[in-house]
């Protein structure tokens, strides 16, 4: 027999042997291998992200003096507006503190904020995930909400030593309850990510919209978190409700599509809100539930 054909046969055999070993190996071996691969990959992700930051730095550095002066002027204006806002907020904060002291009400601190750079994005639209450059060593835990400013980005699903993976709001693994802007009765709706086609737009569905809910004409009502589920703080913006609301065939509720509040695939930096005390869902995710029984 031809030597080349013999070699090809051997490679097939090797491949099938490897697959068989992989299938037959115990789950801890597979999990360990996967974890090792992620940790092995982490420095590369860091390096790529740093490189991207460096490229951005040089891109900015190559701007002309005129461009920088214009940007500086715009920035100064924004800063002035923000300073004004900060002063107003500071007044409100002081008033809040005064009232709390008056009522002897100690404000519990629920979350620690960890700012994280986005290391990479999953380009396949099936998973709707991003990878952050913060992990277990930084205090990130599974189930933590991820936000940008007052916008919901997603929820941490997997945590590795130096990185973590975030299910975006359009991920099929994401779901939360929300209020719709303009619904004075404050009824909850259900937001859940949808599986999209490989080239399709990432989407999420808003279900159980009451039949008598009518958004104002020409407006896209905001969809905000309820704060009742114990994961997301109340009042964060998840996105807006698409104008195309339809009634389900059963005729009891309406459903619509969520437009995420940010372009989720162009994020550079996000905040992970780490609860000071673990939520029950986190305990379940970490399989520590039996410890509490």
């Amino acid at each position: 027999m031809d030597k080349n054909r013999q070699g090809a046969k051997a490679s097939y055999v090797a491949f099938f042997v490897f697959v068989a070993i992989w299938i037959m190996s115990p789950s801890f071996v597979r999990m360990g291998t996967r974890e090792a691969f992620v940790e092995f990959q982490a420095p590369a992700l860091h390096l790529v992200a740093k490189g991207r930051d460096l490229a951005r730095f040089w891109e900015l550095k190559s701007k002309s003096a005129e461009e920088l002066a214009a940007a500086s002027r715009d920035l100064a204006r924004i800063n002035a507006a923000l300073e004004l806002k900060v002063r107003t907020l500071e007044d409100i904060r002081q008033e809040n503190i005064r009232l709390r002291e008056l009522a002897r009400y100690a404000a519990p601190r629920e979350f620690l904020t960890i700012v994280a750079r986005v290391a990479s994005r999953d380009s396949t639209s099936w998973w709707h995930r991003i990878v952050l450059r913060k992990g277990r060593s930084d205090g990130v835990r599974p189930g933590c909400p991820v936000v940008f400013s007052d916008r919901v980005i997603g929820k941490v699903s997997l945590v590795h030593l130096n990185t973590c993976e975030v299910d975006l709001v359009t991920s099929p693994n994401f779901r939360c309850t929300a209020y719709l802007e303009g619904d004075e009765q404050g009824r909850i709706v259900l937001v859940s990510g949808l599986p999209a086609n490989s080239l399709g737009t990432a989407r999420a569905k808003i279900a159980v919209i009451p039949m008598d809910y009518l958004p104002s004409a020409g407006q896209s009502p905001k969809v905000v978190t309820t704060g009742m589920g114990g994961v997301f703080p109340a009042g964060l913006i998840i996105g807006t409700l698409d104008a195309n609301i339809r009634t389900t065939q059963e005729g009891n509720f309406k459903e619509g599509t969520l437009q995420p509040s940010r372009n989720l695939f162009s994020l550079q930096e996000v905040s992970v809100l780490v609860p000071i005390h673990p939520a029950a869902g986190e305990i379940l995710l970490e399989k520590r539930y039996e410890d509490f029984q």
Binding site: G143, P172, N173, F174, R175, C176, T177, I188, L190, S192, T226, M228, G229, G230, V231, F232, A279, A280, G281, E282, L284, L285
Partner: peptide, 15 residues
């Protein structure tokens, strides 16, 4: 009741 639903929705594993 609503809180119970919200807690399940947001905290119980989806998959």
């Amino acid at each position: 009741g609503v809180r119970a639903v919200a807690r399940f929705v947001e905290q119980f594993p989806v998959d």
